[in-house]
Design a protein around this nucleic acid. Structure first.
Lengths: 166, 166
DNA sequence: GTGGCTGCAAACACTTTGCATTTTT
DNA sequence: AAAAATGCAAAGTGTTTGCAGCCAC
């Protein structure tokens, strides 16, 4: 399968595990790596997918780990600060995705089936920096989200539309 | 002031007033143009700025118009469906901006002072369409948000940083 | 007159917080 | 032992909804 056809990108090689990276972050701030935090990090980096706080609580519970909702929220905030996760804000509810060990990318969002496809494009960075320069901004990040209808949904809906027009 | 220096873009000429456009939209759906809705549309299109539901309720109240919170939320949803407003979702709370009578554009967001600057760039559209094509998407819209620090905040903070390093 | 609208209050969904107890360093 | 984290429940936010009366068509 060509890269352009995939929903997810290949991971990037990193020297430390997310857990090690998190411990370093916590140590610097004089904070502690507890068992619930370990469970969370292991679970989150066990699979690559977008998720929200609620899903995480449910998944953990199903896997037999009991971590309280408050700890989940508190730890997610930390993981974002640590640069391990990135907040997506695709809809009203906050979703998260891996940031560490994963290449910079943006998203295509199919408004019909709600699928999110990741893509990488170098020109966006170039454009971002050019626009920032024009406006005297020092860019620190960006979000490029394309809404549309994916190929599968277009195929599924086009015939129905034709009938509607008769 | 050059365009590149402005926070807001110049409006685009449109033949109908927002109110007329809204009435047409409501008529098609067999819905009604009531006094609260008229008040809301007039107020919203009276000034061009980003706002959220809460601000709107407060502003209306200060201007002596009493429109209930629920009606504000309900009408905002309608105005988005009618293509008069666009939802921004810059932060967790939903902000809105004019869509009708205003050119397509994207946003620079200063994370220091929280100011939002609008900009227009044709290349983004080109890039959006090229990327969509690659992935078999039919694009319907996009959001390009650049986070960073604006010129004023950079100037304000740089000296402080230098002192911190002593 | 009918169907849609309004305002109110209550319900909702998501997230944060205060506090007594437990865990980590 | 000191400092920080946890879980619980309670309190916040921001937004939606059910319903009786009201209003535009």
């Amino acid at each position: 399968m060509a890269d352009a056809q995939r929903d997810q990108l290949a991971p990037v090689a990193v020297s430390d595990s997310p857990l090690v990276k998190f411990r370093e972050f916590l140590e610097i701030r004089g904070e502690k790596l507890t068992e619930p935090r370990r469970v969370l990090v292991r679970h989150i980096f066990n699979s690559h997918k977008h998720f929200d706080a609620d899903e995480l609580v449910r998944d953990l519970h199903d896997a037999g780990h009991q971590v309280s909702r408050s700890t989940v929220y508190r730890t997610l905030r930390l993981l974002v600060e640590a640069g391990l996760l990135r907040e997506l804000r695709l809809t009203n509810r906050n979703a998260f995705e891996h940031d560490y060990g994963y290449p910079a990318h943006d998203h295509l969002h199919c408004t019909a089936c709600n699928r999110v496809v990741e893509f990488r494009n170098e020109e966006i960075l170039r454009l971002r920096d050019a626009i920032s320069l024009e406006h005297g901004f020092r860019p620190t990040g960006h979000r490029f989200l394309i809404d549309g209808v994916c190929a599968a949904c277009s195929r599924a809906h086009t015939p129905r539309r034709r009938l509607d027009l008769i």
